[in-house]
C-alpha cells in the first residue's frame, strides 16, 4: 500500500521535473530564423554552386576528371594566336547531376574553379540547371532572388 502511494507520488514528481524542463525552454529566445527576411550567413568554406574565374583557368581538365557525377563538361580548342594557347570551346555545368562534393574546387591547381555561397537553388525548369560557366552573369538570378 505504501509502495502504491510512493509510486504515484514519485511519478508525479518526475513528471513535474520534465514539465519544468519544457517550461524553462519557453523563456529561451527562439533559435529559429524567420527565413525569407532573416537568412543564415554561409560559412567561409560553404560549398554552393560551382563557379569559375575564366581568366585563371589553365584548361587542364582535372576538375572534369575528378567529378564523381560527371557534371562538368569542358572542351578546349587550340588558340589562333601565335603561341597556340589553349582556348575554351565550352565549359558546361549540369547542376542536376552535381552532388556539391567540392572535389573540383580542391583539385584545381590555380583556384580557378570554386564554389560560391548561393544556396537557394530551386528553379522551375530543368533548362535553368544546365549552366554555361563562361557566362558572366549566369548566377545573377540566383544571387538576388528578388530581382526579376
Amino acid at each position: 500500500m505504501i509502495k502504491y502511494f510512493t509510486c504515484i507520488i514519485s511519478g508525479i514528481w518526475n513528471l513535474a521535473k520534465g514539465l519544468f524542463v519544457t517550461l524553462k525552454n519557453v523563456f529561451v529566445k527562439p533559435v529559429t530564423l524567420q527565413y525569407p527576411t532573416q537568412k543564415l550567413e554561409m560559412t567561409q568554406r560553404y560549398r554552393g554552386l560551382v563557379d569559375l574565374y575564366p581568366e585563371k583557368c589553365i584548361k587542364c581538365g582535372q576538375c572534369v576528371k575528378i567529378c564523381p557525377t560527371a557534371c562538368l563538361d569542358l572542351s578546349v580548342k587550340a588558340g589562333e594566336g601565335a603561341d597556340k594557347k589553349k582556348e575554351f570551346g565550352h565549359f558546361k555545368y549540369n547542376m542536376e547531376l552535381c552532388c556539391f562534393c567540392g572535389l573540383c574546387e580542391q583539385v584545381c591547381p590555380t583556384q580557378a574553379i570554386y564554389m560560391n555561397k548561393i544556396y537557394e537553388i530551386a528553379v522551375y525548369e530543368h533548362g535553368k540547371l544546365h549552366i554555361d560557366l563562361l557566362d558572366k552573369d549566369k548566377y545573377d538570378e540566383w544571387a538576388n532572388p528578388d530581382v526579376k
Partner: peptide, 9 residues
C-alpha cells in the same frame, strides 16, 4: 559546416 563547407554531406 565551418570545417568542411556542408551541413549534411
Amino acid at each position: 559546416d565551418d570545417v568542411c563547407g556542408q551541413r549534411l554531406t
